[in-house]
Nucleic acid binder design. Structure first.
Lengths: 158, 158
DNA sequence: CTAAATGCAAAATTTTTGCAGTCCC
DNA sequence: GGGACTGCAAAAATTTTGCATTTAG
């Protein structure tokens, strides 16, 4: 396996793990929670609370935005999802809990996941040990994706 | 020089570069801009607009919060400062424009800068080239700083 | 002098909270 | 049935904007 290959878990599998984790944490399995989690786990674009709400409203017209906010906060407290670090005004989320890194396009702002096992296995500079104990190491790469590069060069200036 | 040693630029030096950059960008050198920049450049804690405003108000009682917001946005557009990626609700800023990385304490939430020249010199996995062109690579390390470790163990539970 | 920048107040955006009713276990 | 959860509405927190006045160049 290449060091950037994606370790896969199917959505049904992930839903089962989620339900189990909720039971362990004494979180009730409501329709809203299941659908919010399913929507987030299916998304690849690290959506905000508002984006999730907009997507879910088609199927669940009575779902309220504050429930989405409250639910995401609950999930995050129980380490079922993560808030993604961004410079955006709206907070963005991901359900992928395995070690991975982010690739951000400076033009379309899309956030992509990627894997880098040799970095994960490497150790940080010695001096850092003096600061404290490190639990996690994450890389963010910034650049311009192929699509946006093409757009700029010849193409279709929006 | 160790690979995590800090390259230094004195504050007066940094102020001169800033003033020159403002002139080049046709930004007027107002008292507010100079003081906001000086405060941010002196800070090591990646302050938010509100924090900067609070600190500056002692010396400049009439400085308004919206001027701080507007000024930081202007500086950022001209690449004189950077917004720091966080999961906080308030946006945070730094005046340090040279390549560096961040160390975040999961307890006190402090953000520290550090340097890692061997990482900076290394190349990213080949597969990434297919995504587009990379302009910047940043590492964020999460963990618990010595101070907070000590607090938890025996010490002085706040 | 003039365009740009500031301060004030008001609005917009994003997120949180109190409470009454509903639903999972 | 009872405590947890949701939806509604209102509030809090953060950031942006319009406009009259001031200021740097």
């Amino acid at each position: 396996m290449s060091e950037t290959e994606e370790p896969n878990e199917s959505l049904p599998q992930q839903m089962r793990s989620f339900e189990e984790a909720c039971r362990d944490a004494n979180l009730k399995l409501t329709h809203q929670r299941l659908e919010i989690y399913r929507e987030l786990a299916s998304a690849t674009d690290h959506p905000s609370a508002e984006t999730l709400h907009r997507r879910l409203q088609k199927a669940m017209p009575t779902l309220s935005l504050d429930t989405v906010y409250r639910t995401l906060a609950t999930f995050e407290q129980h380490h079922l999802i993560k808030k993604v670090q961004t410079v955006d005004s709206q907070a963005r989320y991901e359900a992928r809990m395995i070690q991975h890194h982010h690739l951000i396009c400076d033009t379309c702002k899309e956030i992509m996941d990627f894997y880098w096992t040799s970095f994960d296995a490497s150790s940080v500079p010695e001096d850092i040990q003096a600061w404290g104990s490190i639990k996690n190491k994450n890389v963010t790469l910034y650049g311009t994706c192929r699509k946006c590069q093409a757009m700029k060069k010849g193409g279709n200036p929006a």
